[in-house]
Amino acid sequence: MGKVLVVTSGKGGVGKTTSTAALGAALARGGENVVVIDFDVGLRNLDLVMGAERRVVFDLINVVQGDAKLAQALIRDKRIDTLSLLPASQTRDKDALTIEGVDKVIAELKEKFDWVICDSPAGIERGALLAMRNADLAVVVTNPEVSSVRDSDRIIGMLDSKTLKAERGERIEKFLLVTRYDPQRAARNEMLKVDDVLEILSVPLLGIIPESEEVLKASNIGAPVTLNNPNSAPSKAYFDAARRLKGETVEVVVPMDRKGFMGRLFGRRVA
């Protein structure tokens, strides 16, 4: 029986889809059987970030409504055969997703895969609730920035009250993934430190993903960053996070991309 993981945040643009793809690929690299599901109906992007946008035939809604079999809608990754994608619909109305339909699809996926990773849409409405509904674990993606932290707090409250686990009186396991972190700016007290965010949200830390050019480079190409450049700083952080998800104890460090001479000279970005 696989585990269901939701990647969520409340706020948009903090790195849910990037993290879903990167963690999914990192787990699959480690030999786990992984499926990533896009719950952002109407604004799907996981297919694009994974480089599978031209291979989408059927989607989650087709499966939910019985127009396609699950096996027909799953897209197997060309780079790792233990990684699959279930895309969202780009054209259909998001109300086409039903609770019963989603529950059935997730139950079926849990039989086939070790990890079912749900990429939540932004917001706290129906789509986000459906994405978190069946979750055993949650990764809350947060930027070290006030609006993101506030929205994460709201989402944590919803994870504790609106998921099936919460309704059964069980505890959903929650982890914080701090993305776009710049240790230098944090050291200069220009950016919230990870410890501040952890203290405010009081959720255990899954990892710290440093701000890096590699993330954009990977999405330009259509590859999870952990596959595109496995030795880059964000990839190392995602690989460590994936190991922690599996229950391993890994010391938290913030890997940094190595800069050349010119990079060090001009590296201080005007922010």
Partner: peptide, 11 residues
């Protein structure tokens, strides 16, 4: 420094 202000406002 602005980060401590952010932390206090959030708390």
């Amino acid at each position: 420094t602005t980060a401590p202000v952010a932390r206090d406002r959030l708390q």
